[in-house]
Design a protein around this nucleic acid. Sequence first.
DNA 1: GGCATCCGTTGTGTATACAGAGTGACCGTG
DNA 2: CACGGTCACTCTGTATACACAACGGATGCC
Lengths: 237, 237
Amino acid sequence: MARASEIAYEALRAEILSWELVPGSVLAEVELSSRLGISRTPVREALARLVGDGLAEPLGGRGLVVSPVSAENVTELFELRQALEAQAAALAAERRDAARFVALQNEFREVPLLLADPDPGRHAYYDLVARFDDAVDQAVQNPFLVSALNAVRTHLVRIRRLSHDNPARLLEAAREHLLIVDAIVDGDPRLAADATRVHLYRSLRSTLGSLVAQSDVEHDDHPIPTLITTTKDATTR
Amino acid sequence: MARASEIAYEALRAEILSWELVPGSVLAEVELSSRLGISRTPVREALARLVGDGLAEPLGGRGLVVSPVSAENVTELFELRQALEAQAAALAAERRDAARFVALQNEFREVPLLLADPDPGRHAYYDLVARFDDAVDQAVQNPFLVSALNAVRTHLVRIRRLSHDNPARLLEAAREHLLIVDAIVDGDPRLAADATRVHLYRSLRSTLGSLVAQSDVEHDDHPIPTLITTTKDATTR
DNA sequence: GGCATCCGTTGTGTATACAGAGTGACCGTG
DNA sequence: CACGGTCACTCTGTATACACAACGGATGCC
């Protein structure tokens, strides 16, 4: 059995990323320690790591809450993401193992067949993107860059629960990804970076559109101000 | 009086950045708690934050050490830094408060006069660069990007102690910075990003040259393998 | 009836005590 | 003399107990 603090961190992180703990939820140490069946000490360590990840933040100097998610957050996050992923794609194009990306190339070409079935194909596509990200991480050979990318991806997981990509968008995204993979296979850093920026620009536009739409729906049905807020400051550390 | 864990974190962080704690130093909880005059609990919290910052790392699963610094680290760090600072400069060019950067422009123009006195001018120049960084941070209005930049700058502080910039390099750097400021004042994002990449490329070359030279000196005088290592893995989180 | 103050409760921050595991040294044997 | 085993020590990980500060409610005064 691993350390209790590690278990607590993984559990809380998973609950936050899966929206079981919605933004704004209070993270009380005693409540969590009793719920997780461990003492307060490892819970404190887990909470400190969550604050470091930007998933939790202090609330008025007393207590912690799950950090909010807003449209401003998404735009700001994508500005960072664009810089990181464009650099990663460029470096991957220079240092890649060609065979591995040729294999990914073939997989991305078959995504339209994959998405014929709407729901199982969705997850298969997300798995493929995850494998692409792993391949890029290994190709760049840069712990600093990979660490920063993983931090961004953590926040993206929460956002993905907000914006439900429609099948048409997924097909577009697959074509955009394929272009990135092509550039990496060709060893063209400039094109890889530019194709990445194109993909992320369209992805952001799609995400924001989905956010606004869902925000309106929520507003009509039952107002949940904690889900989509217009808070401008989400301190990430 | 602030929290003891905060004091411990700031103290240890300062000692690591100032090379009072050299890379490879063991960070034992009991020793630190007695030295800092506090109990182990806040020390543990401080150490956890240092690991999160990448300033400390586990050693073989038992105990923590101050993370090493190597030439590979510097190159990798600059690959991340280039992506972040180029993006920050571009966004700053779009969103800047023109007056503030015009003031910086005048200051950078007078750096040659400043560096007439070698030693006091050095610190005055570093202060100017710090104010420039602050101005960029405020201009970009992006907590995620600023947070990532601060993480990189933390590591740069340690590296700066290794590579002593010579006056000629500082003059060059000032000219390069001035070009970045010019681009930001002109509201030219593309030029701001490109000028930033030029500056960082030359800065990296200078740093690496200084590193190798100092490494040789150290090797001749008294070998300190912990200072300049060829370790390829520096886990940053 | 409204507002201010006081007290109780709750929750964080810190200290200390305990358990388990790994490492090192020392002793015994081949 | 060398190698292996065992014991003890030291370290981290966890639990618990205590102190202080803040928030909320209730009560008394204006």
